[in-house]
Every structure is written in structure tokens, then in C-alpha cells.
Amino acid sequence: MNIVLTIDTNFAPQAAACIASVCENNKDVSSISFFILTTGIKEPAGKKLHTLVESYDRTLDIIDIGNIYQYFDSDFDTAGWSEIILARLLMARFLPVSVSRVLYLDGDTIVRRSLSPLWNTDLDSNLIGAVREPTASAERRKALHIADMRYFNSGVLLIDLDSWRSNSIEKTLLDYCRNHKAVLFASDQDAINGALATRIKELSPSYNYVNSFFYYPYSALVRMCRPAQYISRENYEAAIADPTIVHFLGEERPWRAGNTHQYRSDYAHYLSLTPFSNMPMEQGWETYFKAWRTFNTATKPFPMLRYRIITSLIPTFMRFRAAKRRRT
């Protein structure tokens, strides 16, 4: 089993929790190789990650890919996201040619049970397996020329890397970024959806549980996906009842003081098994989370109103993130 993560040095503790969760729940897998693509991990973080992986008798290769913008246009803008998100588009370039299939995991995920059913999923001649993101707006899908199609989250990807290479998918994705950079919001994710729309197999939400599954009822998610059909209510409810992979998407993350994420104890447990176990909580979020809980309580009876408000505020959040990144 080959697991790929893309992180910078600031996300090493979260990645460690993810790695520990994979190892703890997949002890019966004979071989697990971890690959971290990074623009630089400072010591002692790198050494701690190696120590963690070796304690489970697994392997880790930390691959420094250098300046990621050398592969994109000089004026390419990630719109407030860390540039490391683009590394997943380049993984075939940096991974050994012997690696034919990979499971990509965002650094802000944790695994709660065996990955073998996911790893052994037949992609049915598709390049990628991914979980739908119902909350992608109709305007965003229209800008990517997939208005009538499904939109997927790129935080968990099962990838046929042999087919990726043989079909020159890296070039396809980079060309898409170059030709559509004016409309890209989540650069890598939009590119994957726009360029590979007909080559993605839909996976169960169990493999990429995000906050929207908690905040919105099934009926609202169905409306958001239109005109594309969403999965059946029966399959949806079974998948989210006890998910395999939790993705801490959004601002309410379990390493931030004052959060009440429903899977925060899972994250804390796996972090406790790593050399980063004494990592302090990120401070300064308490007031934000109080306001967030008030907003969620007030809008719970009106999910589509909540959706419209959140969608309208996202550009503001991203401009704030971009300004914060420029300051640091």
C-alpha cells in the first residue's frame, strides 16, 4: 500500500496524526510505504516523522520538490491556499516508477479503520477514485464547464498512477491550469475536476467525511448537486454513520482551541501516539468558534439559507487567508 501526503513543515504534526491513524488501523497490511511531497520540512520535524513511521516498521520517503512555481506560470495564484496543494498534480514526476497505485491523503485527515477495501477498489478503467463534494456551487461548476456533472473533493484520491503516466495526465492538468487560471478557485481540485471530469470513479462518502455532511441534511445536499444526481439516501446514511476517513475541512479543526468538531477526540488520540504529542493547541480561535456555533444554531432550520451565506462569504475568507500568508 502506497500512501502519499503533500505538506509543508507547519503541517507536520497533523500529518503525523494521519500517519499514526493509518498504521494503527492497518496492522494486517504487509507493506505500507509513505511518501511526503514537500517544499521543505525543517528539523527536527522530519526526523520525528521518520521515527514515527519506523516505529510501525513501515517506510517513509520525504521528497523535497523545491520551488513548485517552476512548473506553473509565473503569475499563477493559489488564491490563499498553500502552494503545496499543487504538488498532488505532480506526484508521478517525483514518485518511483515502481509505484503503480497510490492513495493520496490530505494532511488534515485521519483514518479510523482498515483501508484495504478502499485500496482494493476497482477503478473500472477510471484514473481516479474520489468522493463527491456536494457544496461546490453551481457557478463554480459552470466556470469549469462541468455544470451538469459531479464535482469531487481532492483530499482523498485513489489513483492509478500507471495510467496517469501513460496518459500524460500531468501535462493535461498543467495545461488546464494554464488555460483556466482566471476561473480556478481551489487550483488543484478545480483542475482535477475540470480536466478529468469523465475519468473519476465516485467513492463512498465514508472515505472522505467532511463537515458539510454534519451541517446539511441529505435533502439539501441533493439540491446542491443538481442537475447531477447524488447517491441514494440509504448509501449516504450508511456511509456517514461511522466513516473510515475523516477530513478536517474548513476552519473548525481539532488542533484549534475551542473547537467542538465531532471527531476531535479521534484526532487527539492519534496525535498522542506521535512524537508531536505535546503540541499545544492553536490559540486565538475561541471567539470565532463561539460565533460559529451561534450561526450554526440559528441557521440549522434553514440549510439552503446557510449554504447561500457560506458560499457568499468564502471569497472574503480566502482574501483574508491570502493576506495572512503574504504577511508571514
Rank of each mutant, 00 (worst) to 15 (best):
T274R: 09
P275H: 09
P275D: 00
P275F: 07
F276S: 01
F276R: 00
F276N: 04
F276V: 02
S277E: 12
S277Q: 11
S277T: 11
N278P: 03
N278R: 06
N278E: 08
M279R: 10
M279F: 05
M279L: 03
P280Q: 01
P280S: 01
P280K: 03
P280H: 02
M281P: 02
M281C: 03
E282W: 04
E286D: 05
E286N: 02
E286G: 02
T287A: 02
T287F: 01
Y288M: 04
Y288W: 03
F289T: 05
K290D: 06
A291E: 06
A291D: 04
A291P: 01
A291Q: 07
A291G: 04
A291V: 04
A291S: 05
R293M: 06
R293H: 11
T294F: 10
T294Y: 07
T294H: 06
T294E: 06
F295V: 00
F295W: 05
F295D: 04
F295Q: 01
F295C: 02
F295P: 00
N296H: 11
N296P: 04
T297E: 05
A298E: 01
T299C: 13
T299M: 15
K300G: 01
F302T: 00
F302Q: 02
F302P: 00
P303S: 03
M304D: 08
L305S: 06
L305M: 13
L305Q: 09
R306I: 05
R308E: 09
R308I: 01
I309E: 07
T311G: 09
S312C: 12
S312Q: 12
S312L: 14
I314F: 07
P315H: 12
P315G: 11
T316V: 15
T316L: 15
M318L: 13
R319A: 08
R319Q: 12
F320T: 14
F320R: 13
F320Q: 14
R321Y: 15
R321T: 03
K324P: 11
R325Q: 15
R325A: 15
R326K: 13
R326M: 11
R327Y: 11
T328R: 14
T328P: 07
